[in-house]
Amino acid sequence: MTVSSNNAVIEIRQLIKTYTMGLTQVHALAGLSLHIQRNEYVAIMGPSGSGKSTLLNIIGCLDMPSGGEYVLNGQLASQMDDDELARIRNQEIGFVFQTFNLLPRSNALRNVELPLVYSGIGSRERTDRAQRALQAVGLGDRMNHRPNELSGGQRQRVAIARALVNGPAIILADEPTGALDTRTGEEIMQLFRQLHDQGNTIILVTHEEHVAQHSRRIVRLRDGLIESDAPNPGGTPV
């Protein structure tokens, strides 16, 4: 659709997002530009209200920018219609939420199958792929458990399996350890590191420094603009 420079999976130019709250307009993003390459591991940090979640939601095609350009995999996402965005969310992006967002009445397997249901994949192949994804996150023996029968860490693993199952280009995580205790959070971060090592592109939003230290590049936001953008040498594999 538009110029795709070298190996960039995400190209953001002059991105603006404005919310109207009552009578005042809030600029969550004020003309932000960012490029992310394939197989990068980026942490987006910043105080609350800095626009980091808004940025992640726009990258994940859950929200639309008010202005600027967002190119995902060479496609101009900021001009797509709803059906195309749904397809992108389904196939190009795997989303991991702070509160897991699993369907409470479905078991782990059904939850992981969900993105495949919406890509129109037949039930046998669906189950097969969902099982493999659950095994990959170490939950091969918990497939028939419902979310309320799983611990927080296990739930987040189910959510990660669900994010991975359709083989997305990028994995987005919004405070993935925010609802977990430190030890479980570390386990989840190990899992992300593994995924990165396997060649996945990962972008995560956090306000915790020790979580961000797992990444290879840290982008800090303030008032809807990038404050600093630097590689993180500490993020090398342990």
Binding site: G60, L62, D82, D83, A86, R87, R89, N90, Q91, F95, N101, L102, L103, L114, P115, Y118, S119, R162, N166
Partner: peptide, 16 residues
């Protein structure tokens, strides 16, 4: 509503 949100986030179209 939340279930709808989850489904939409995972690729459900409006039509679905």
């Amino acid at each position: 509503t939340r279930e709808i949100g989850i489904r939409r986030a995972l690729g459900a179209r409006r039509r679905d």
